[in-house]
Amino acid sequence: MTAMATAGDVGRASGRRERVAARLQQGGALVVVVVVTLVASLLFGGRFASVDNLLGILEASSFLGIVAVGMTFVIIGGGIDLSVGSLLALSAVLAAFGSQFGSVVAVALPLGVCGLIGLVNGLLIARARLAPFIVTLATLLFARGLAFAVSDEGNTIFRIDPDQAVIALGQGSIAGIRIPILLAGLAFVAGWVVLNRARYGTAVAAIGGNEEAARLMGLPIARVKAAMYVTSGLLAGLAGLLVAARSSSGQSTIGVGLELQAIAAVVIGGTLLTGGFGSIAGTLAGVLLLNVINNVINQVGTLSSYFQQVVSGVFLIVVVLVQRYLTREQRL
């Protein structure tokens, strides 16, 4: 009872501060992206601010972006999905492997398998009530193992025949813009609409925000949760498919640590890692930020590209501390 009273007092007293801080947190990544982009444009001029370079950044962002959309839903729903990096690799391998049997198989096989593994994640988490962290950790191992198994322990790198239609997914472009960029854009728009305008999106946020309340309100908890992980698996699969099409091959070693980048992008974008609240636009800003910084570090030349990971880590800590500060009263 006392805890409740305290929460109320704090809640009211800090209403304004909280609103300001919340806005800052949500828009922070976007502001930093814009600032970094502007500063880089001034410093490096055409080397950075050319259409080619900027499109390059977008293309590099598109694979992570697609994965991060799925991750955003999972994290808002109070979970985590560590398997996406392995799923991306598995998908790439299966796409290249399947391309021997035609483009339809090259698309259907990886998406089907990744969706299925996502479903296994979802069922173990939603039905058997295992911790998302440990379940997706297991599927991280499993999917990577499967990718290696399919590719003869990574010794076989399947090539996609340049005649295959599926190649267009990675290398084609519409109006001068590469298809992966367009598909990533589509994923973000669809993600935004679902999160903000569909019942499903609200249900995800409600479950992540207060699962008990959501249950009492009659939401189908298990189904929504399972759907989150299936979606995340499918999107990771799509990203892997695009990577394979882009590089005309499927390698089992790609995507290691991608899950961490995706989580970092999502959290930097203002989504609460504890669930219940998040923003697709923020995730987009987070993904772009990581890639812009990477690009800038490459431009500087004297800096090693590994600084990007350090920057991500520092960003993560700062963002999480801010989030902690913002949601402090909830834990009382």
Partner: peptide
């Protein structure tokens, strides 16, 4: 002290720490 969930706190160090190691060793 800050009360961050362990999985989150150590995740940040997982990402940043590997980068730091690579920076130290110049990759």
């Amino acid at each position: 002290v800050a009360g961050v969930q362990p999985i989150v706190a150590t995740l940040a160090l997982l990402v940043g720490g590997r980068g730091l190691a690579l920076v130290l060793a110049r990759g």
